[in-house]
């Protein structure tokens, strides 16, 4: 059987679509349509769930932090830890007004993540406070402004205060 014209036309159409699609994918390679960063809070075994429910004044709590970079470029990042309440949580645009207690920094390439254990310091908590919030904010170093910029990403954990 010789090559049928209709079969040949269908095969050619498939090849045209496949080649144009492949070329487009190749040109778009490395282009990040939706750049973002992410932060996650994990328990002391670096797993989701089973977070501590109580903390004591002047103690440390072991937790795990996860940071992911999908900005399409290397990032110099830091996680800032503050102790606050449900009234002093950060927003998408502003960080928490509470003072920073600790911070952890690192450098991540595009599509890289970092998961690391942290010993979170719990400072002296006033006697009348029964519930506090551990706040972790993700900041990145803006290479154009030469300063740290809040990403609008944070995680928090509400815990009771044990006496």
């Amino acid at each position: 059987m010789l090559l049928d014209d209709e079969v040949f036309a269908v095969l050619t159409a498939i090849v045209v679509v496949a080649s144009v699609f492949s070329a487009a994918m190749l040109i778009r390679e490395g282009y990040v349509a939706e750049p973002f960063t992410a932060i996650g809070l994990l328990n002391e075994n670096c797993r989701i769930g089973e977070y501590p429910g109580y903390v004591r004044s002047n103690s440390t709590v072991t937790l795990c932090l996860y940071v992911y970079n999908h900005e399409g470029k290397p990032l110099y990042w830091k996680v800032v830890y503050r102790l606050g309440s449900n009234k002093t949580l950060p927003t998408n645009t502003t960080p928490s007004p509470e003072p920073a207690i600790q911070e952890w920094r690192g450098v991540l390439g595009h599509r890289q993540n970092s998961t690391f254990k942290v010993a979170v310091r719990i400072p002296e908590i006033p006697l009348n406070t029964t519930r506090v919030t551990l706040i972790f904010e993700l900041w990145v170093y803006d290479v154009n402004l030469h300063t740290w910029v809040y990403t609008g990403r944070w995680v928090h954990l509400h815990v009771n205060v044990a006496r």
Binding site: P74, L75, Y76, V107, H110, Y141, V143, N144, H146
Partner: peptide, 15 residues
């Protein structure tokens, strides 16, 4: 930051 910041900027340009 004074040391790392400019380096990250240069690495970003390289990438």
């Amino acid at each position: 930051d004074e040391r790392i910041g400019p380096l990250v900027e240069r690495v970003t340009r390289l990438s």
